[in-house]
Design a binder for these strands. Sequence first.
DNA 1: GACTATTACATGAAAAAGAATATAATCAAG
DNA 2: CTTGATTATATTCTTTTTCATGTAATAGTC
Lengths: 156, 156
Amino acid sequence: MLDEPGNVAEAATTTDDRLDPDFMEDYVLYMMALASHHMSAEFHAIVRAEGLRVPEWRILATLASYEPQSVTQLCEKTLYDQPRLTKTLHKMEAADLVTRRQQAHDRRVVHATLTPRGRAVVQDLIALARDHEIRALSALSSAERRQLKRLLRKLI
Amino acid sequence: MLDEPGNVAEAATTTDDRLDPDFMEDYVLYMMALASHHMSAEFHAIVRAEGLRVPEWRILATLASYEPQSVTQLCEKTLYDQPRLTKTLHKMEAADLVTRRQQAHDRRVVHATLTPRGRAVVQDLIALARDHEIRALSALSSAERRQLKRLLRKLI
DNA sequence: GACTATTACATGAAAAAGAATATAATCAAG
DNA sequence: CTTGATTATATTCTTTTTCATGTAATAGTC
């Protein structure tokens, strides 16, 4: 595709004909995504340095707070869809991070719990997450941090 | 994997041994991701109803504000990595949404611009995005909306 | 209690994303 | 200019994700 002679710009004929120059600057969904991404990206590097993928970390962290959880419940908390959860949990079981147990009272349901190894891993990461959170929010005063949490809760 | 008789929970022996019950409730990165997801999910449904994928919408919206952009610049704005941008732009060119032009002053660089069709599509979607944003933020007062934007800008 | 509907999870094929690397153009130094 | 380093984009190969569908268990209805 690089050899398209007809498609080479000949000169800087660019007049500023941007369609909607202000849209992105002020679009809250984009600002949220940006802020969320910037804060998360740093921590995700830490997660991968620990040998986990991000979805695995999210599942572990969710279990640390809400264990035990069915696949469906984990979908709701982690925001991942069901096939993805099922497959990731299978891999995590193989990696000795979680245990899956079919429930006797309703045998369609499978609960996931942390293994000892899963617990150890997530406990480490939660400590790192708390450290990182403090750094990530250091641009804000403590009043602003409270404000931010309050606003986010209202939006959820 | 369903037929694992040794792995069926016999009774509700669950004592509450959650590892860190409060972590998720108060972890700002998770709250941001949740809020961002909840707000975006509704709009992403609109995007797909228009026949676009979310990354395509983000690229179009970015071009609407910052056109023309090189691949590298689009990576920075959209938060996607370079191979992904390259591939998505190729598909979008095939779909007559953008034009790619190698730059004469530096032939390594490829600029993307909106086609007339791309402009029409993104213009529609920006209108829908603005409508949706108003609804998505309706839980907040206008003072709170300003606060939120201010805080997000500080975090970016 | 058989019959249909619904729920919960699993799976398979196709598409997309990610990591590593390749190519091509420019730059910088001598 | 020629060589080596750097930059911008493309491509390849592998892994993940997605979409649609399958299967098994339970719930509801007549």
